[in-house]
């Protein structure tokens, strides 16, 4: 492999700064109490102001019961876990069929299972709210979880299809010839072999759910807060470099950070995330 040129190295550094640097001012801001124009650093830090102010500020506020961060966090996790579980369970059989069989109309099915990703969520969300109001699940956990399934299933199907494409069907056939029924074949042969891929699909679906704003915002009607909807209202009402918003941004970034670390640790491969989306179909191993 050719080494990167000087211009290339400069480009990489600029990009690194563009992606990583913006987190820094928010980290600083989250520990500020006052940050007057035009100071480059907070004029008063959080720990200097604690005694003098009667109200909790910044991190103190976020971690106090009045902020509502606890319930929002819990909601995000619960909704995310259930969404991811459902998305994986619903997508697994479809992925297996898409990877193993060719049939008439397969292209249509594949397209249909991808299209929710490119159809405007605002259209789906508004129609869904009316539909859910009719059947009485608007503003409930069930409603939000169902809403989150719409973007989660396409990605789960995509990831799991490639998992099954890499699983040689002869393992199952061998198990069947050895007298294993379909259930025990699935449990003893298929499941252990697809587990890493299924874990990736679960984590990715969780991440999608944890990052959704608009669908939650529409379906919950403000009754249920998740981390993104909470961040939205803080950005809407807060000043730039506001300590609470800054702290919240860092907390909202946690699921993504954890996901990155786990996926790096699971795969040891920096390109893995790309293959989970709609990029290349297969990876050719290099000699």
């Amino acid at each position: 492999m050719r080494r990167v040129s000087v211009t290339g190295r400069l480009f990489l550094v600029v990009m690194l700064l563009a992606f990583a640097f913006p987190f820094l001012p928010l980290l600083v801001a989250s520990f500020s109490f006052r940050w007057h124009w035009p100071a480059l650093l907070p004029t008063q830090w959080l720990w200097d102001a604690r005694e003098t102010t009667p109200f909790p500020v910044g991190w103190d506020y976020l971690f106090s019961p009045i902020s509502g961060l606890g319930p929002a966090f819990l909601n995000t996790v619960v909704i995310g876990v259930v969404t991811a579980l459902l998305a994986v369970v619903l997508s697994l059989p479809a992925a297996r069929v898409l990877a193993r069989y060719t049939f008439r109309g397969k292209g249509v099915v594949e397209f249909f299972l991808l299209v929710p990703v490119i159809v405007p969520q605002i259209a789906v969300g508004m129609g869904m709210l009316l539909l859910f109001m009719r059947i009485g699940i608007a503003r409930t956990y069930v409603g939000i979880i169902l809403a989150h399934l719409v973007p989660a299933i396409p990605y789960a199907v995509r990831i799991l299809t490639s998992v099954f494409q890499n699983l040689d069907p002869r393992y199952e056939e061998q198990a069947r010839t050895l007298g294993s029924g379909w259930l025990s074949t699935f449990r003893r042969i298929v499941l252990p072999m697809v587990l890493p891929g299924v874990t990736t699909a679960f984590l990715f679906s969780f991440l999608i759910s944890a990052n959704i704003f608009l669908l939650t915002f529409l379906i919950s009607g403000g009754r249920l807060q998740t981390l993104p909807t909470m961040l939205f209202s803080h950005i809407e009402s807060g000043a730039p470099l506001d300590a609470t918003t800054a702290g919240l941004v860092l907390i909202v970034s946690v699921p993504g950070l954890v996901f990155l670390m786990i996926s790096d640790w699971l795969t040891g491969d920096h390109a893995a995330l790309g293959r989970t989306s709609f990029g290349s179909r297969s990876k050719k191993e290099r000699p």
């Binding site: 928010l26 990052n211 961040l231 918003t245 941004v249 909202v252």
Partner: peptide, 10 residues
């Protein structure tokens, strides 16, 4: 891997 809103805050 972070929500668009994080970008907005930044």
């Amino acid at each position: 891997v972070v929500p668009y809103l994080v970008g907005a805050a930044m």
